[in-house]
Amino acid sequence: MTLRDTLPAAMIAAACAVATVVLAARAPDGATTRREPAATPAPLLDGLRVGDRIAGWTVTGIDPTRDGGLDVTVARDGMAFALAVVPLGVRPEPPPFAGDTHAIYYGHARPPGTQIPAGALRAITADLLRRLDRAAR
């Protein structure tokens, strides 16, 4: 065995590994289709977890909001947006989607300026509302 045998491949391996980590970390939340390692189910949304798919979109983040709800980030094909599921009445703005107990707001499309497809929005919010119903029962 010589250094020539192993060193170049080892260097390429290290470079690729570093690039993987850096690019995965640098990507804006949910801007890639990578799955987060920790996938704790959200009871409010009937066990929805990071990595699940809704209408072809991958859930890349589920984070608590300050007003007692959840921010759900979904991504597909390098595009992402967030949906905030919060108790009805805690936000002053009229909600674009509402169930019996919760409202759903959406936004934070990435890359900036991207238009969220209306069909995807309707399908995802409908799914979230059904999940809220199931969880409430």
Binding site: A17, A19, T20, T32, T33
Partner: peptide, 11 residues
Amino acid sequence: GVDPAALAATA
């Protein structure tokens, strides 16, 4: 902007 899975496989 695509998933770096190919990089991980190459590594």
